[in-house]
Design a protein around this nucleic acid. Sequence first.
DNA 1: ATTCAATAAAATTTCAAGATTTTAAAAAAA
DNA 2: TTTTTTTAAAATCTTGAAATTTTATTGAAT
Lengths: 218, 218
Amino acid sequence: MTVSIEKTDTPEIYRDLHQRLITAGFTPGEKLKAEELRVTYGCSANTIRDVLLRLSTVGLVSFEEQRGFRAQETSPEKRHDVARFRILLEQEGASLSIRNGDIMWEAQLSAAHHKLSHIETTIAKNGELEAYLPLWSAAEWEFHDTLISACQSPLLRGTYRNIYDQFRQQMVAQERDFGSNYFHAIITEHQAILDAALDRDEERCRKAIHEHMKRNFI
Amino acid sequence: MTVSIEKTDTPEIYRDLHQRLITAGFTPGEKLKAEELRVTYGCSANTIRDVLLRLSTVGLVSFEEQRGFRAQETSPEKRHDVARFRILLEQEGASLSIRNGDIMWEAQLSAAHHKLSHIETTIAKNGELEAYLPLWSAAEWEFHDTLISACQSPLLRGTYRNIYDQFRQQMVAQERDFGSNYFHAIITEHQAILDAALDRDEERCRKAIHEHMKRNFI
DNA sequence: ATTCAATAAAATTTCAAGATTTTAAAAAAA
DNA sequence: TTTTTTTAAAATCTTGAAATTTTATTGAAT
């Protein structure tokens, strides 16, 4: 399923490959051949190499010297690791935000949740997942990122971004339910996180975050 | 101070630049010109680009599209951030290791500490820092890495590795004491971490880790 | 039949030069 | 003098091809 694309430059190639990697656009462990991708994107092999090197630094692509690049492998162990680490970072980020966040943070979090909740309710009702998936993806990210946005640690926030993407990559690979049951469940979970955060209750927020992610432990 | 080096291949160039970056081999924020380094290492500009891209993914080099590479900038804020994040990761890794580690872990940690302690005592006595620095660097890393090695989370351990390196980079840039006072202090601190870990006392270990790093908050 | 070695094919990595973009310097205008 | 525009220099990025390494295939030997 190699779709040919017209003259894209490096940042676009990066974005496109990034997107494909976190939406099951490649089979986990699939070899990413520079020559093949070169044709797809209409650029030189070196440009592809450039992009793949960057994607390997954020963990979406695995790289071995002289053996090229592969879409990151998935495994129960990896999913477990990614889920646990994401919980750790999000709990810590949320705690710090609860301590440091001002009214603006509350407002932004509220707004992000409102958007997310609206989309999730629509999906839960109508079930047209396909159509809403890109919208939902963006909104889900925005909510979680806003939650930790007042932590005052660029490193924590940046690391969380990488782990969140790896989480997505691992989880979409192992397709599960994703029916309307799933969306009903996460609506409640997101609400619990929001409530605890706005109540400035660190412990409850940590628990809510754990609840939200525990289905990914297997 | 550009020293010409004979025909080094990529992994070696990576190691060498990595080493220089975490030992104040470049002024923070200094431009890393591909052409200059190309001459130094006797390779093509593309090989240098390759290496710098990888170093930027681990945070030692900053990279801006079309504007090239720079040795990571330093600032009190960055140091603070890196120190806090390192504490978080090491505390969490140590806690998990205390819970999961077996006898082998205890033995390895003991051994790592023994080596480190021997080197630090020597430096505290003789004061010949220069001669022992590479030895001490390796031993310090081995101790801290072993401490978290039983955490059973490759992601946590890998992230810690990056942050530890960034910590080094930030701290050596801001040269402080490093006299025999300093080494007397950290001997005690490392001992406290070891004791708490072997006693399987998570809380005490967390405190000891915090104590060890708090001088870097400013 | 299975293992090992030799060969061929494919893929990755390196190279050097050309194209593009950014940065610095000089000249012109306000 | 300060700001803006123009020009020149420098650096980055891309390209296509050569060199190296890995992987797959074939044939020989145990």
